[in-house]
Amino acid sequence: MFKLNDEGLFLKLGGNEFEIVPHVISIIVITLVLVILAGVVKTKIKKADPLEKPKGIVLLTEMFVTGINNFLKGIVGDKMKGLAPYIGFLAVYLLIANTIGLLGLVPPTSNLTVTGTLGIITFLIIQYNGVRFHGLKKRIKSWAEPFIFMFPINVIGELALPVSLSFRLFGNILGGAIIMTILYGAIGAGFTSLIGLTGLNIGQFGELFASPFTTVFHLYFDLFAGLIQTFIFVLLTTIFISLAVE
C-alpha cells in the first residue's frame, strides 16, 4: 500500500499512485498535538473550580477563547458565535503551521493544496452563511449591484476571494522557505569554498556554519511572517464572513 523510494513516499490505491508529500506528515503531527492539547484542556477545565482564579493552561485557554470570542464579536457581531472554534482553529493551526519550520518540519502552509483547502472551506462558510442570512435570491441579486453588467465582475470577485486568501499564505510561507534554503545554500557554499582554501573539502557540511548568520532571518521569515500571515488570514476570513452576513 505504501511505497518509499527515491522519489518520495507514495500511497497506492487501486491502479493509482499518490505521493505523500512531507507536508502531510506535518499536518498529522500538528493535528495530533492540537487534539491532545484540546483533550488536556478539556479535563483541566472540567476539574477547574469556577470560583477559583484560573491558572496555567486553563488561564491561557480562557484568554484564548475569550480573545477569539471578542475578536469575532467585534467584527461580525453576535450572529456567528458558532464560528468561534473555527476562527480559533485557524489561528492556532496556522500559527503552528507557519512557524513549524523552526522545528525542522516542512510548514504545511507552504503547500498550495493545504492553503487552497482552507481557502475553499472559508469560501464555503462565507457563501453558506450569506445564503442563510439573506436568502439565495437576495444574495445573487446583490452581485448585480449597482448595475446588471457588474454581475460577472462581482462573481469573479467572489471567486477570487479563496484564491487570494490561499495564494497569499502559500506564497509568503513558500517564499520564506525558499529564501531560507537559498541563504543556507549560499552561506554554506561560501564556507565550503572558504575552508576549501586550506585544502579541506567539507562539501555540504558548510551549511552547518550558516546557522549563526541565518538566525535573524529565521526570526523574520519563519516567526514574524508566520505571525503576520496567520493574523491576516484570520482577519480576512472574519471580515469576509461579516460582509457576507451583514
Binding site: F18, V24, I27, A38, P85, Y93, L112, V114, T117, I178
Partner: peptide, 27 residues
C-alpha cells in the same frame, strides 16, 4: 519545495480536510 508545494495532491487535500474537521470538532 516548489514541486511538492505547488502540485495539487488529493492525499494532502484529504489530510487537510480531515485535520480541519478533527481539530474544529476537538476545539
Amino acid at each position: 519545495l516548489v514541486q511538492s508545494g505547488l502540485m495539487p495532491n488529493p492525499i494532502t487535500l484529504i489530510a487537510q480536510l480531515l485535520a480541519t474537521f478533527i481539530i474544529f470538532l476537538a476545539f
